[in-house]
Design a protein around this nucleic acid. Structure first.
Lengths: 155, 155
DNA sequence: CTTCCACTATGCAGGTTGCCCAGTGTTCCG
DNA sequence: CGGAACACTGGGCAACCTGCATAGTGGAAG
C-alpha cells in the first residue's frame, strides 16, 4: 500500500507543508522526481485526499462541538435525510450507523444556546424523528492520521 | 472575524490547493500581497490550521470506522486515559463528553474483526471501564467546513 | 487635518517547478 | 538466460513563483 518512504513524505509534509518538493527530496535524501512521483501516486490512489487549508470552526466563533444521534422514520431511507442535513452548514459530518434508521452527525455551534437552534434545524429535517445530542467538552485527541501512517510504515 | 475575500480565498485553495498565491490573486482580482497578508493573518489567528496532506485511512486499508463511547473509572480523570488512547494509532480522535466520566472516540480498523482487536486495546487502557461502539456504515457527509465558511461570509 | 491601515502596483534576486532525458539496478517471466 | 517493465538517480533548461522591499492611494478614526 504505502512504504516507508511514502510515510516519511507524508510525515514531512504534515510537519512542514510549505517545504516544496525539491526541499523535501533533499531532506529525505532521494531524487526530486521520486518525491514527485510518490506524491502523484498517493494522490491518484486516494491515500492523500488533498492539500487544502484546514479550517478551524472554533476560530470562526463556532466553539461548541456536539455529536448528535438521529433516529429516522424508517420510510424514505437515509439519503434524503443526508441531503437535508447537507443544507445545514453547521453539520460538519454525518454517518449512517449500525442501529437501523439511525445517523450520527458532528455539528458545531456558536454557543450552547446556538446549539439549540442547530438541533432544531436538524429535527425539522424531513425524515428525522428524534435527536439525542452529546456535547464535546474537550477535544482530547484532535483528528490525526500520522500515528496510523507510522504504524503502517514502520513494519 | 473573516470577510468575504477571506472566504473566497479559503474556497479557492480548498478547490485547488496547488494554485499558489500569485495565481490566486489573479483569479480573485486582488493584489498578490493582499492574498499573502490574508493567508498570513488567517494562519496566525488559527482560522487556517495548516495545509498538510489529508490522509484517507480507508485508502490505507482501514475501511471500517466506528465511534466508541467509553465509560471511565471516576478516579484519575480523563487525561491519563487520553494519553493511553493516544498510544493506539487506530484512535483517530477523542473527546471528553457531557456524561461525567465518559469519552467518545473515533476509531478505524481494517475490518470488523480487526475492530475487535482495537476495542480490546481500548478497553485494556487503564481507567477505561466499558466501551460501547457504533459502526459507521456510510459517511453520508464527509468532514467539511466550506459550507460554514460560506454561511459566515455571505452575510 | 493627521495618523493609521489595508490595499495596489511594481521591481528584483534567488529558488522552485514542470518537463525532459540517459543511465542504473531490480524484479519478474517466458 | 535474455528481455521487458519499473522505479530511481542525476542532470539540464526555461518559465514561473516566492519573499522581500518600496511608493502611492483611499478610507476610517481620532
Amino acid at each position: 500500500m504505502i512504504d516507508d518512504l511514502d510515510g516519511r513524505i507524508i510525515e514531512l509534509f504534515t510537519a512542514e507543508p510549505r517545504v516544496g518538493v525539491l526541499e523535501a527530496s533533499r531532506r529525505l535524501g532521494v531524487a526530486r522526481g521520486t518525491v514527485q512521483a510518490r506524491l502523484d501516486r498517493m494522490a491518484r490512489d486516494g491515500v492523500i485526499r488533498g492539500f487544502g487549508p484546514e479550517v478551524d470552526p472554533a476560530a470562526l466563533g463556532y466553539s461548541v462541538t456536539a455529536f448528535v444521534t438521529l433516529q429516522l422514520r424508517q420510510v424514505g431511507g437515509h439519503d434524503p435525510v443526508a441531503r437535508g442535513l447537507a443544507r445545514i452548514p453547521e453539520v460538519i459530518e454525518a454517518h449512517t450507523i449500525t442501529s437501523p434508521g439511525d445517523m450520527l452527525c458532528r455539528v458545531v455551534a456558536r454557543s450552547n444556546a446556538d446549539l439549540q437552534r442547530v438541533i432544531d434545524l436538524i429535527v425539522a429535517t424531513p425524515g428525522v424523528e428524534r435527536a439525542a445530542s452529546v456535547i464535546s467538552l474537550a477535544n482530547q485527541i484532535p483528528a490525526r492520521t500520522l500515528p496510523l501512517v507510522r504504524a503502517i510504515t514502520r513494519d
